[in-house]
Design a protein around this nucleic acid. Structure first.
Length: 720
DNA sequence: TTTACGGCAATTTTT
DNA sequence: TTGCCGTAAA
């Protein structure tokens, strides 16, 4: 290993830094992973026992990649560096809690629940408290779950979250607090833990049990934390608690890439690190190995207007390359077609899997997905449903879950839902009967439903088996197969294949609990990146973190979409959107294309309305990109003049026809008396009404039942 | 109490 | 488009 040659001076400094706290600010594409891997390898080479190194990462994939690369450096072949304890905070917390579960008063262990299970439980709490019945203004259970989760991650009251970002729910604040309490109580009663509990409970374990804390502080002499900018407050406290006596805590991150504030991550952690660990050496990695200089100039400009940060300016030795392009389709609908044309062009230069299309939110790629289908371009979407979230997987896992924890309500309802005539209510009663050991009630129900007796017999037989996940899963799948066929008649074979994969995964485990926890903590959503050969990549910006492509296209860079309209009111939210854009643009190696549609199609109104380019695009110096307009044929046309962000002129009047094709997209709007514009509409005060006529000045005559005809500005109407 | 159906709203990001 | 929720029928 030739550290000096393989690394640049800053990287070398980070890799060879002596003991003590170390903070590495690693700009995008600056060889962050390389630095961690080399440091890991060097420590081991210097005789540090791998088992005394703790490597905390954001995803399991990241940790595996680092460990196997370090092993390679050390000449261990393709193996993963043996002994190093690596994984996510949640997975580490789970392992620790499991080890010490008696200490914490969970003699029977516990089950980790995912977001869907939490939603369900919260729904039940809502019913129990009799809240929200017939009240349309009461938030849905998943929304409530979100609020509760946020309050825990940010460590404030639910009411605070509400008053900060959902003030329309303030009338329900008390009820929502009660639900948060009820949810916590329900989890305790059923031996369940959600993601947040894992972290808080680990903290409690370490604070209250000095012996346990000392155990870990001695066991790990070196702690390395990746993506430190995405840690929340508990996670930072956990690091402090775990910090070894040697003081060897290394945090790596980039404050400019902090994009998880919505779930409690705070940039403060990385900014405060040197204060919390006095004597911290701070090293900045600023040389970028990924992108061309023109792309970096744009990304640096995006950061220019950011608030508090570690100042850094990325530079590259790759001075060549085209400027980023600003692509201007007529609308978000024609954007999809224009993107396909662009993708075809890029695909002449790079394989498809070197091209990615990124967007702010999952739904923004729907139109493109349709066009890609028509154009026969294969693609792979990231951020979609994960393997372990697929319904059939959860269905099958419900059986072993009942075996592992007979108090698990979500698991019971799932199993029992396959017995005809048994719904949520009966399922709940049966679970109670099981809990109380009320054999009479169970027998009675079993007599009534023959299939129920079968199910109980089956579950008992599972319980009687030795606790090996492999065989248990095999039986569960066999038992479930008929239901699968019934539930997914056309999709049956594909899902069965998925279950066989699950069986494979399960047989690699020796403990049922560990399998179940892993399935909720880190779904093996595989290395489909490399596995699927030549697929275009579609991804949300969040899921693109840490990845890179030769060419990157970014969709919908207009106000309300990116930045998202939810982020427009508060400054800190807007700052996060800016960093999100920064992350997106820094994924590109050679080509970056930014789509800025001139109009957005409004489905309800059936028209396209003009939009402003994204705030972040507007503030960019025009010289940093090239503008390309959409021609009538859908082909891009380079513009000789520099970008100009005067608000786009309305195509005709206040509305244009829906863009069904490139040509019709700019046909003149129909005359104002066109009957197609005389449909039904809604008004905040008068309710539903019928438009009788369109008048000058954007006004309409509308007939509201019960109120009679009124003259209304169409801005105040919502079309149906 | 279950199940089927239809209306209706919403649609950010996720360990 | 989906998916949630309330309603009505069985």
């Amino acid at each position: 290993m030739d550290f000096e040659n393989d690394l640049n001076p800053a990287q070398y400094q980070a890799v060879t830094a002596a003991g003590g706290p170390l903070l590495v600010i690693a700009g995008a594409g600056s060889g962050k992973t390389r630095t961690i891997v080399y440091r890991l390898a060097r420590l081991v080479q210097q005789g540090v026992d791998p088992a005394s190194i703790l490597l905390l990462t954001f995803t399991r994939k990241a940790s595996q990649e680092m460990l196997s690369r370090a092993a390679m450096l050390l000449g261990h072949g393709g193996d993963i560096l043996p002994g190093v304890c690596g994984g996510t905070f949640h997975a580490f917390a789970y392992a620790a809690l499991r080890r010490h579960h008696q200490t914490l008063g969970f003699p029977q262990g516990f089950t980790v629940i995912d977001r869907a299970d939490a939603d369900e439980l919260i729904g039940r709490v809502k019913d129990d408290l009799g809240l929200g019945k017939g009240d349309k203004s009461f938030p849905k259970k998943s929304h409530v779950a979100e609020l509760i989760g946020k309050s825990r991650n940010k460590e404030c009251r639910v009411a605070d979250i509400i008053s900060r970002e959902s003030f329309h729910l303030l009338p329900h604040a008390d009820d929502l607090e009660r639900m948060a309490d009820g949810y916590a109580a329900a989890k305790a009663a059923h031996h369940l833990m959600d993601y947040d509990d894992l972290l808080f409970l680990l903290e409690r374990l370490l604070v209250e049990h000095e012996d346990v804390r000392e155990f870990y502080r001695r066991r790990f002499t070196h702690i390395m934390v990746d993506e430190y900018q995405d840690t929340n407050r508990v996670q930072a406290r956990l690091i402090t608690l775990l910090a070894p006596h040697t003081g060897n805590v290394m945090a790596v991150g980039d404050d400019a890439q902090s994009i998880y504030a919505f779930r409690g991550a705070t940039v403060d952690n990385i900014l405060a690190f040197p204060r919390i660990f006095p004597g911290t050496a701070v090293i900045k990695l600023e040389q970028n190995y990924r992108s061309t200089q023109p792309i970096l100039e744009l990304t640096n400009a995006i950061l220019q207007n950011a608030g508090e940060k570690y100042d850094k300016t990325l530079f590259s030795t790759r001075t060549d390359g085209p400027k980023p392009e600003l692509l201007r389709p007529f609308s978000d609908i024609t954007q999809a077609r224009m993107a396909v044309v662009k993708i075809r062009e890029l695909a002449r230069k790079w394989p498809l899997h070197e091209i990615a299309v990124l967007f702010r939110a999952g739904y923004q790629s729907y139109a493109l997905e349709v066009e890609l289908g028509k154009a026969n371009i294969p693609f792979q979407k990231y951020g979609g449903i994960k393997f372990s979230e697929a319904a059939h997987i959860k269905d099958v896992l419900a059986y072993p879950r009942v075996v592992a924890n007979p108090l698990d309500p979500a698991a019971w309802t799932r199993c029992l839902s396959f017995v005809p005539k048994i719904g949520p209510k009966t399922a709940l009663r049966l679970m109670e009967a099981v809990r109380l050991g009320d054999q009479a009630a169970i027998d009675k129900a079993a007599k009534k439903h023959p299939q129920l007796a079968e199910l109980f017999a089956f579950l008992d037989s599972l319980r009687a088996m030795p606790p090996h996940p492999g065989p248990i899963l095999e039986r569960a799948i066999a038992h479930h197969a008929p239901h699968l066929m019934e539930k997914y008649p056309d999709d049956y074979p594909r899902r069965l294949t998925g279950l066989e994969q699950l069986q494979q995964i399960a047989s690699g485990y020796s403990s049922l609990d560990a399998l179940l926890a892993d399935m909720t903590l880190e779904s093996p959503d595989e290395d489909k990146r490399k596995a699927r050969e030549d697929h275009l990549v579609l991804s949300t910006v969040h899921s693109s973190k840490g990845l890179e492509w030769s060419a990157v296209l970014l969709l919908d860079l207009v106000d309300e979409r990116f930045p998202s309209r939810h982020a427009l009111t508060r400054d800190e939210d807007l700052e996060e959107e800016r960093r999100l854009l920064y992350v997106a643009c820094t994924r590109a190696r050679d080509y970056l294309g930014l789509f800025v549609p001139e109009t957005l199609y409004n489905r309800q109104a059936g028209v396209c309305s003009p939009v402003q380019p994204s705030l972040f695009v507007r503030e960019l110096p025009a010289s940093l990109c090239t503008m390309v307009r959409e021609s009538l044929s859908g082909r891009p046309v380079p513009q000789s003049d520099s970008p100009d962000f005067a608000p786009p002129r309305p195509l005709s009047g206040s509305a244009a026809a829906p863009p069904s094709g490139p040509i019709t997209a700019c046909e003149p709007a129909p005359p104002r008396t066109d009957p197609s514009l005389l449909g039904y509409c809604r008004h905040k005060v008068f309710g539903r009404g019928k438009i009788i006529a369109r008048l000058e000045g954007g006004k309409c005559r509308v007939n509201f039942p019960g109120f009679g005809p009124k003259m209304i500005l169409s801005d105040y109407l919502e079309m149906e």
